[in-house]
Design a protein around this nucleic acid. Structure first.
Lengths: 70, 70
DNA sequence: TAATATTCGGGTAATTTGGGAT
DNA sequence: ACTGTCCAAATTACCCGAATAT
């Protein structure tokens, strides 16, 4: 739905995921993440999709529950 | 709600805690520590959370004993 | 046009994953 | 209950030269 979404370079996505830029390229080639190609062949990624992937964790997301002071 | 904090690899977290990387994986699987998954399935950990745990911060530790079949 | 940084490609080590046995 | 080790498969990291981006 979002068309006015910033595009990120492979290097930027790599930094966010803490992986090598080449790994991001492999994700795109494997269809694990959407990508846009520049006329020159370089890939660009939608920031909204990247942030969604970064937020999606399994079950360890809890608020800072205050532990019982015993 | 800091989503903009650096991520650590399982190996880095393991080194910080002086445990085997497999143990870190078990913590994540058990929900004892939050984790992010790369599109390839590898785990990444939030540095802020790891540092909090290393500092002896017990926040997040709930005394949820399940079925104390003592 | 030139210069620098990034991102192509491929190829080969290193790490991570998941299960199982100790 | 928790952790460290063994194994095979999958994913990721680092190497190069050439093309693209700014």
């Amino acid at each position: 739905m979002e068309s006015s979404d910033r595009l990120l370079t492979p290097g930027e996505v790599a930094s966010l995921f803490r992986v090598d830029p080449k790994t991001v390229t492999r994700w795109a080639a494997a269809g694990r993440i959407g990508s846009i190609r520049t006329p020159g062949g370089h890939r660009r990624f939608r920031e909204s999709e990247v942030r969604a992937l970064l937020s999606g964790d399994e079950a360890g997301f809890a608020e800072e529950s205050q532990a019982t002071s015993h």
